[in-house]
Structure formats: C-alpha cells, structure tokens
Amino acid sequence: MKNANKYAVTFRFGLQHALEYRSNFFLSLISAFVPAVVQYYIWSTVYKSYNDTTLFGYSYEQMIAYTILAAVVSKLVMTNMEHAVSNDIKTGGLNRYLIQPISYFGFRLCHYFGQKLLYIIGFIVIITLILFVSPASRQLEHEPERIVIFILSIVMAMIISFLLSFAVSAIAFWLADISYFFVVTSLVINVVSGGMFPLELFGEGFRSAISVLPFYYMIYWPVNVWTGIIPSSELWLGLLWQLGWSVVLGGVAYMSWKLGFKRYLGLGG
C-alpha cells in the first residue's frame, strides 16, 4: 500500500507538470492537428478527382478518420522521454533511484501516464466529437467488440511505445553525445508507425514488412481497428501481437538496463 502511494504521487506529479503551463497544453494540442489539416485537404482534393473510389484500400471516410486519429494517437503514444532519461543517466540523477525504494522504471511509467492523462481526456472528447458527429464517420461501422479492442489496443500501444522508449534511452549508457540521436529515432519511429501517412502509401511490401515489427502496433494498427481496415477476424490476433511485443520489448528493456546499470556502477556512477 505504502509503495503504491509513491507511484500515485509520481503519477500526480506528471499530471501537475502537464498542468503547470496551461497555455502550453492547449496549444500543443492544436499543433498536433496542423499536419492533419493539411492532409485532410490533400486527401479531399485527391478523392474528389477520383470520384469517390477507394485509394490504397481506403474509402474517403476511412482516410480522413485515419488522418485525424493518427495525429492524436501519435501525440498520445510518443513518450518524448528519451532526453530526460539520458539526462538522468549523464548527470547522475539516477543515483537517487539506487538508494530510494522507488524503481526508476516505475517512476518513469507513472510520470508518463500522469503526463498523458490530460491528452487521454482530450483524446476521448475529440473522438466522440469528430468521429461520431462528423459525416466522415457515419459510414464507419463500430460493433461493440471493435470499440473494446480499440480501447485495449490504445493502452497496449502506449505500453509498447513506453517500453521501446525506455529500451532506446538505455543507449545513453554507452554513447557520449546523443543530443540529436533521439530526435532522429523518434522521427523514424513515428513515420514507420504510420503517424504521418498510412503505411500503404509506401507500398504494400513495406506495410507487410513492418507488420511483423512493434512499430506497426503503435499507431497504424489501433487507428485502423477504428477505421475498419483491419477485418474483424484479425482483431484478437493483433491484440495478441501487441501482447507478444510488449513482453519482448519488456525483456529487451530489462536486459539493456541491467547491462547499462552494470556499466554505470562500473564507472563509479
């Protein structure tokens, strides 16, 4: 009980951090939608000229839903914590967690979910507003099972993304200067996860190649559970893939941090 309390405090701390700069929070929500607006107009123009056929396997409504949802989900899923973690490693901030009875992993996890809580609320509002009210969504079918899996898949996507970030940030144990490294990794991860465009744009071969990797299940898959691109028969299978990848990434994160800590202590902290 006492232990859980500490994590609750960390969770609250993350939320507070997000609240601290009020204007920032609302504005950063807006900035997430700017690229979606550009793409909305591009797709609208394109579909008009094709007379409403499907493109890359997406109907117009599905494409618009994808564009909007991908913007939100990528904002929700991307942790952007690599810099903070590597900073902790470099400046010895990690030492605190070696002596305190709170694990660094737990601290980061709670901080992450706390920080994203506002986004989750905003996310629910946006989905109900845009996707249920707007005409773009009328033609999308949402059987209850699909909605449940969608919600589960978002949670799983957040976990996968967190574990991936946590594993990637362990590189700070070995590389000296990494200020730009994480900028590139998060950009690449976002693109190959489908955060910018649907993966079909890069060709069917690319999509199926990515489909066996964890990135596929971070943005592309949850979003397409909603749009209906993922057939009902594959819903549970995908969730299983997500579960599998979280276990694998959990293992990778655990191993890399174990090795990293060994090196960290070896260097004398």
């Binding site: 609250r12 939320l15 507070q16 609240l19 601290e20 009020r22």
Partner: peptide, 9 residues
C-alpha cells in the same frame, strides 16, 4: 499542490 495547478489554469 495539484489543486493550485488547476486553479492557476
């Protein structure tokens, strides 16, 4: 405190 964070909004 968190209450004040909300108030500050």
């Amino acid at each position: 405190g968190i209450i004040h964070s909300f108030k500050n909004l």
